[in-house]
Amino acid sequence: MKASSRRLARELALQGVYSWQMSKNPVSQIELHLATTNNVEQVDMAFFQELLRSVIKDYERLDASIKPYLGRLPEELDPVEKAILRLATYELLERLDVPFKVVINEAIELAKSYGAEESHKFVNGVLDKAVRTLRKHEQS
Rank of each mutant, 00 (worst) to 15 (best):
R7W: 14
L8W: 11
A9C: 10
R10S: 09
R10H: 06
E11Q: 15
E11W: 03
E11C: 11
E11A: 13
A13R: 03
G16L: 05
G16W: 05
V17E: 08
S19T: 12
S19C: 09
M22R: 15
S23H: 04
K24E: 10
N25C: 08
P26F: 10
V27R: 01
S28C: 06
S28M: 09
I30L: 04
I30M: 05
E31P: 04
E31M: 07
E31F: 00
E31G: 03
L34N: 00
A35D: 06
T36E: 13
T36Y: 05
T36Q: 14
T37R: 13
N39K: 10
N39R: 08
E41H: 14
Q42H: 08
Q42L: 13
Q42I: 08
V43N: 05
V43G: 10
V43C: 11
D44A: 08
D44G: 07
M45D: 03
F47E: 01
F47M: 04
F48H: 00
Q49E: 14
E50L: 14
E50G: 02
L51D: 06
R53Y: 00
V55P: 00
V55M: 02
I56G: 04
I56E: 02
K57G: 01
K57I: 01
D58Q: 11
D58P: 03
D58C: 10
Y59W: 14
E60H: 08
R61I: 13
L62S: 04
L62V: 05
D63L: 15
D63F: 12
S65W: 09
S65R: 13
S65Q: 13
I66N: 02
I66A: 07
I66H: 02
P68G: 11
Y69E: 05
L70F: 09
L70N: 04
L70A: 07
G71Y: 10
L73T: 12
L73I: 04
E75P: 02
E76T: 08
E76Q: 12
L77C: 07
D78K: 06
D78F: 02
V80P: 01
E81K: 10
K82P: 01
K82Y: 06
A83W: 01
A83L: 00
I84S: 09
I84P: 02
L85S: 05
R86T: 00
L87H: 03
